[in-house]
Nucleic acid binder design. Structure first.
Lengths: 227, 227
DNA sequence: ATGGCATGGATTTTCGAAAATCGTTGACTC
DNA sequence: GAGTCAACGATTTTCGAAAATCCATGCCAT
């Protein structure tokens, strides 16, 4: 892994991606306090761009800020998981319904293409099945994004993307125990087929079930372990 | 108006509120470029807190950032207005439905109280009817917030609050021409009564109509005037 | 022993200047 | 005359240190 990538555009943007990445793949864990000294070491830059990155992350809910007490990684909770799930059902469900109504041939092509890529990699790593593969994570996101990409509402897409990102903080924990119990691949294939068949009702129902199963598996795992 | 209020907690937080306020009441207009020199003069502080404020505002969509070309106020567009309206119908509608389902006595009390306050001030200023009164704006927001405050979903509430804020950038333009043509007070009273009567279907329908009328009035006004 | 208060260290927050970047003006070539 | 390229000015972006703030420790009085 490249320790120093060729700074995309601004250092602040780099810091944002790097810290967000560290949060999402578990190197920074929920509740951890974020000291500027550590973050400067991680990102190899001064305090200003780090601070801007944290400001963005906080506005998106990945970190929280106590005035004059610094930033910390947002903590996980059962109630937030339920809340995220309910909101995903509402927003992504509507976005999927609209996409099925409005989608054209290119939308269908995006679904087929992203699903094909997703189906070609396993969910967990061979050496450590409990850790999600980075490429699976990216392709999984791309597939779900493709499903709703024809909804015609940038704001709704943004909301869905935000929710997906938050759910990702929980998803990393989920795959470790549900890998064998669920056939996630089949669920994705079914979603694709229902969408391509323009079955709005069925696709939304399948999406709801997809999210509910994820939430249920997590609920059983989390119960008693977090607030 | 106090030019220098007793800095709430941090300067960055102050700058955020001040700049957002300037955007929402029209002193900074859509499309305006935001030069740090001007903003430092407005906020009476150095560049660092201003930058953090802009980072937050950008994450919320009130401003936009072109890398190395600085920040500017997000511009208005007909398509965004339609998008905001559609999303408000979806999200606030659901939040209202849930609140009617779950709301208790204190929820009802909040609605009655905020409506009472709202009904006691006129929408436009006496001297300049085309300019929204600040206190009306605040009370209007409080009333709509109260309606959905019992939905039980912090995330949904946050989404609604964000959408309400964005709609506010358009609302300021709206009142100048629709003041006489619409009886907004009656619409608010009807919303309150339907909610207290626990008529979920009716209340959501009334909310949708409320937003659609606002959007229609704006559409007629904006047409041809913005992108 | 217990409660309040001042002191010290660790950390965040802010400052003012230096470095980097972009758009433009102007000269120069074809 | 049109197009290309280099240097300038304006502005953003970043730095490193100073100022402000919070938490904890220890002291003193009750």
């Amino acid at each position: 892994m490249a320790a120093d990538r060729p700074t995309g555009k601004t250092l602040a943007g780099d810091a944002y991606e790097r810290i967000r990445g560290a949060i999402q793949d578990g190197r920074l864990r929920p509740g951890d306090r974020l000291r500027f000294a550590d973050l400067q070491a991680l990102c190899a830059m001064s305090v200003t761009p780090v601070r801007e990155a944290l400001a963005r992350l906080t506005a998106e809910g990945f970190t929280v800020l106590d005035d004059h007490r610094g930033f910390s990684v947002a903590s996980l909770s059962l109630s937030e998981l339920r809340d995220i799930t309910a909101n995903r059902k509402l927003c992504e469900g509507e976005a999927l319904r609209l996409s099925i109504e409005r989608g054209d041939g290119e939308w269908e092509a995006r679904i087929v293409a992203t699903h094909h890529l997703l189906a070609r990699v396993p969910q967990g790593r061979d050496d450590m099945p409990s850790v999600i593969r980075h490429d699976w994570d990216e392709r999984h996101a791309a597939f779900h994004q493709a499903l709703i990409s024809a909804c015609g509402s940038p704001i709704l897409l943004d909301t869905c993307l935000r929710l997906f990102g938050h759910a990702g903080r929980y998803r990393r924990v989920s795959v470790s125990l549900s890998g064998l119990q669920r056939d996630v691949e089949a669920e994705h294939r079914q979603l694709m087929e229902l969408a391509l068949a323009r079955d709005g009702q069925g696709a939304v129902a399948a999406l709801h079930a997809h999210y509910q199963r994820t939430a249920d598996a997590l609920e059983a795992f989390f119960d008693g372990r977090v607030a």
